[in-house]
Write a protein that binds this DNA or RNA. Structure first.
Length: 296
DNA sequence: AATGCTCGCAACCGCAACCAC
DNA sequence: AGTGGTTGCGGTTGCGAGCAT
């Protein structure tokens, strides 16, 4: 499997599959000197490979903590969900799935998941339902879900190379299922707190959310918070750091901004989109817990 | 058994982003 | 602001394994 036998290319640089000896050399070197300096690494380590190749081999194969083998049900589900939210941003998706690499996820998507979705009549690019011939059990009832993505998520493609990005992604369903299943398309009604117009809602400690509303009333909990952009922006899913503030402008009853130290959150409300949020800020554990716990 | 075809995945390639100067 | 070097990302390639005929 894989590429052709190792062959020397220009400048005596090997290409093709890595040998065991090369793996050992690379691992030993990185354990001793750490990652980075990829261009110089091959020379220093005595490898006839380009730095890029070394980096890739380390990140995708040799790095400790990598999971091998089949994707679990949960992982598959998570990939579908994250792809719906993030598009082909494999490294971001991989960052949310411990032990899996972007390359692995990308391959798995291209060879398994996209096909599965297509077979179910779902466009794997935008996760929209095409001509589904569903039985009544899995009817997609968007009218019943005010959190349907098209209304709340307006993710813009991030690069021109992204052929398959979500321009209108389905919201994350709390009743999500793996790609085999239609259920993740049948978004249930979601409990929401009515917007508090003109109020500022802050959470000084997001790792254990306690909300305070500027009028002095307090509330705490995980299941009753604002989900202005589908459910992604539920505050619980934004990792803890100071100075998060959700606010509801008087003129936009369903849209909120999150103010952070990051200047992007000072963007014009009318143009703020889900892609403006740094996805690294989302805490996947709470993401999963929230999904598992909720049955609204 | 031989041949052809499809699938899965490691690895490569090009390009954009980032950084230092 | 411009330039050059480096890194990281996503798309694509190409080979071996496995399956079908």
């Amino acid at each position: 499997m894989g590429r052709s036998q190792c062959s020397k290319g220009e400048g005596g640089i090997y290409k093709g599959p890595w040998t065991e000896a090369e793996d050992t050399t690379l691992s030993a070197y990185i354990k001793a000197h750490g990652e980075g300096n990829w261009r110089l690494l091959p020379k220093c380590a005595g490898l006839s490979r380009c730095g890029k190749s070394c980096r890739l081999r380390w990140l995708n194969y040799l790095r400790p903590g990598l999971k091998k083998g089949k994707f679990s049900w949960d992982e598959e589900d998570l990939i579908v969900t994250l792809h719906a939210l993030l598009g082909n941003r494999w490294s971001l998706i991989a960052g949310r799935i411990p032990g899996r690499t972007d390359n692995e996820i990308k391959n798995y998507w291209n060879t398994h998941l996209s096909r599965k979705l297509r077979n179910k009549g779902i466009d794997p690019c935008d996760h929209k339902v095409g001509q589904l011939t569903l039985n009544s059990k899995y009817t997609v009832d968007r009218s019943n879900s005010e959190l349907y993505a098209g209304e709340f998520i307006h993710q813009q493609p991030t690069t021109s190379a992204e052929k398959c990005t979500t321009t209108s992604s389905p919201a994350y369903s709390k009743h999500h299922s793996p790609a085999d299943d239609y259920e993740h398309l049948a978004l249930p009604p979601v409990k929401r707190i009515p917007p508090v117009q003109g109020k500022t809602i802050s959470s000084p400690n997001l790792s254990y959310p306690t909300y305070s509303i500027s009028d002095g009333s307090n509330s705490s909990g995980e299941d009753e918070y604002l989900c202005p952009y589908g459910q992604l922006c539920c505050m619980d899913w934004i990792s803890a750091s100071d100075n998060h503030v959700l606010e509801c402008p008087p003129d936009r009853s369903h849209h909120y901004s999150v103010e952070q130290q990051n200047p992007v959150f000072n963007a014009d409300m009318s143009t703020l989109s889900i892609s403006d949020f740094d996805c690294l800020d989302f805490d996947i554990k709470e993401f999963q817990d929230d999904a598992a716990n909720s049955d609204l």
